[in-house]
C-alpha cells in the first residue's frame, strides 16, 4: 500500500458556513506533504477530522488502510499529532509529560522511560528533563510537543504550524527535526503559513483556500512556470499615482505589479536592466530607495493561486500566535 492517507470529498460546515468543502487528496507513505493556505482556509479543521477531533459531514478518510470515517479511533494508534498550540501539562516535568503521553499509547514503564530519555537527548532537552513544562521557553515547549507527538513511534505525523510563535534559532532546530523524521521514514502531514518553510521541507504541496484545494503538486512542478523568470523589486518613496501606467508604456516587454505600498515588482523572461527603470522613476519624482533582484519562489506561486499576500498572512498568524 503506497498511500498512508486517502481523503475523498471531505466536507465540514459550522453553523451553515463551509469550513471544508469537498477536499480530496492522498499522502504517500514516507512523504512530507505540505498543506498550505491562509488563515481560516480549513487547514486545522481538516487535521481535526483526520485525527478524530472533528466529525466530517461528508466524505471518507482512510489512514494506513483503515477506514476512519465512521470510527476515528480505529487508526489513532498509527498517528501522532503536534497541534498548533503546545498542549502538554504545565505542572508536569518534561520527562513526566513524555512518559504520560507514551502511556496513553500503552507503552510499558521501562520502554517509555527509555524512549523519553532518548527523545529528550535527541531534542536537546536532557538538561530540562526534570523542569516543569510551564517553565519552558516557547521553543523548548514546541520541541517537547513534537517529541510527545512521536513518543509512540507513529507511522504518520500531523504537524500543525510547528514553527509559529518561536524564535528563529528554535524554528531552525524544529525544521531540522522534521527533516530528520522524514529521512527516518515517517509520513508527515505539515500545515504551515511559512511558505519558504514548506518549500524547503515538503515534497508535495496542496494549496487550500476557502475550504477547497486549488492546487496539488510537487514543489518542483509548482515553481517550474516561474523558475526561468527574472524578477526585480524596487522600493520607492513619493511614488506618483500613475507610475504603473507610465512604466508599462515605457517597457512593454516587462510585467509590473505593486505587491505593497511603495514597492514595484518587475518580471521578465530576460534579465532586467535596473538603470533605465530607476531613471524613469526618478524622472517622475519617485525617490528610489532600493532596487534588488529576487529569486522567484513558491511564495509567488502562492500569491498567484490564492490572490493572498503571503506577508499579510504571516503577520496575521503571528499576531494570533505570538510573533517569532
Amino acid at each position: 500500500m503506497d498511500e498512508s492517507i486517502i481523503v475523498e470529498d471531505l466536507a465540514k460546515s459550522f453553523e451553515g458556513v463551509e469550513a471544508v468543502a469537498g477536499v480530496t487528496f492522498t499522502v504517500r507513505k514516507g512523504e512530507l506533504f505540505g498543506f498550505l493556505g491562509p488563515n481560516g482556509a480549513g487547514k486545522t479543521t481538516t487535521i481535526n477530522m483526520l485525527t478524530g477531533l472533528a466529525r466530517p459531514d461528508a466524505g471518507t478518510i482512510r489512514i494506513g488502510g483503515i477506514d476512519c470515517t465512521a470510527n476515528p479511533k480505529a487508526a489513532q494508534h498509527l498517528v501522532g499529532v503536534v497541534p498548533d498550540e503546545s498542549n502538554l501539562y504545565q505542572e508536569l516535568t518534561g520527562f513526566d509529560n513524555l512518559c504520560f503521553c507514551a502511556a496513553l499509547y500503552g507503552m510499558g514503564k521501562t520502554e517509555r522511560r527509555a524512549r523519553a530519555r532518548k527523545l529528550l537527548d535527541n531534542f536537546g532537552l536532557a538538561r530540562a528533563a526534570d523542569r516543569r513544562f510551564g517553565g519552558y521557553s516557547k521553543g523548548m515547549k514546541r520541541k517537547l510537543t513534537i517529541a510527545a507527538g512521536i513518543i509512540h513511534r507513529p507511522a504518520i505525523l500531523f504537524l500543525d504550524e510547528p514553527t509559529t510563535g518561536i524564535d528563529v534559532a528554535s524554528a531552525r532546530q524544529v525544521r531540522q527535526l522534521i527533516a530528520d523524521l522524514h529521512r527516518e521514514g515517517t509520513t508527515i502531514f505539515l500545515t504551515t503559513h511559512y511558505i519558504e518553510e514548506a518549500e524547503r521541507l515538503c515534497g508535495r504541496i496542496a494549496f487550500i483556500v476557502s475550504g477547497r484545494i486549488v492546487r496539488i503538486d510537487t514543489v518542483e512542478r509548482l515553481i517550474q512556470p516561474i523558475k526561468a523568470k527574472h524578477v526585480l523589486q524596487i522600493a520607492c518613496a513619493n511614488m506618483p499615482d500613475d507610475v504603473h501606467a507610465r512604466l508599462t508604456e515605457a517597457f512593454p516587454d516587462l510585467e509590473f505589479s505593486e505587491p505593497a505600498n511603495g514597492l514595484i515588482r518587475v518580471e521578465a523572461d530576460q534579465p532586467v536592466g535596473v538603470g533605465p527603470l530607476v531613471r524613469l522613476l526618478e524622472m517622475h519624482s519617485a525617490e528610489v530607495v532600493e532596487a534588488k533582484r529576487v529569486r522567484p519562489s513558491l511564495e509567488d506561486i502562492f500569491v498567484r493561486i490564492t490572490g493572498i499576500e503571503a506577508a499579510a498572512m504571516r503577520k496575521e498568524k503571528e499576531r494570533k500566535g505570538g510573533g517569532r
Partner: peptide, 15 residues
C-alpha cells in the same frame, strides 16, 4: 479549555 484534553481524545482509548 487549555486543550490538554485533546491529547486524551486523540489517544487510542475508547471514550
Amino acid at each position: 479549555k487549555n486543550r490538554s484534553f485533546e491529547r486524551l481524545l486523540m489517544a487510542p482509548i475508547p471514550l
